[in-house]
């Protein structure tokens, strides 16, 4: 069974500061959108995989990695995988940029 995917337009690239996360709620899912220093965009669910939870958007970004703001877990923005020695995964969503629109599909 294939569920229907929706495309949301998040805004213009300029609205996203390099290496600083921004929160966007897309229907029921709250996303943290990151723009890396090479201007790639990534979207992850704004919820730490740490057992105690918490947001991700305020973390420090280095390359394609995010250091979560509350527990300092290192997370790969490309696939959502938590790096060793911690374990876990964050839901990731594909982001496209066409012209002046940053879009996410979920």
């Amino acid at each position: 069974m294939e569920s229907t995917k929706l495309k949301y337009t998040l805004g213009t690239p300029q609205q996203f500061l390099p290496q600083i996360g921004r929160v966007v709620a897309c229907g029921p899912v709250e996303l943290a959108i990151f723009r890396t220093s090479d201007d790639q965009f990534y979207a992850v669910e704004n919820r730490s995989p740490h057992p105690k939870g918490g947001p991700l958007a305020e973390g420090i970004v280095s390359g394609y990695y995010l250091y979560d703001p509350l527990y300092d877990w290192k997370i790969d923005l490309r696939n959502g995988e938590v790096q060793a020695p911690d374990k876990g995964i964050v839901a990731t969503f594909p982001v496209t940029v066409d012209g002046d629109n940053v879009n996410v599909i979920l």
Binding site: L17, P18, Q19, I20, K52, G53, G54, P55, E58, G59, I60, V61, P69, L70
Partner: peptide, 19 residues
């Protein structure tokens, strides 16, 4: 560099566990 600041200093406010 705001992007090099730990969350609390970046936001000028202290984050709590519920965000």
């Amino acid at each position: 560099e705001k992007e090099s600041r730990f969350v609390n200093e970046r936001m000028s406010a202290n984050i709590q566990k519920d965000g």
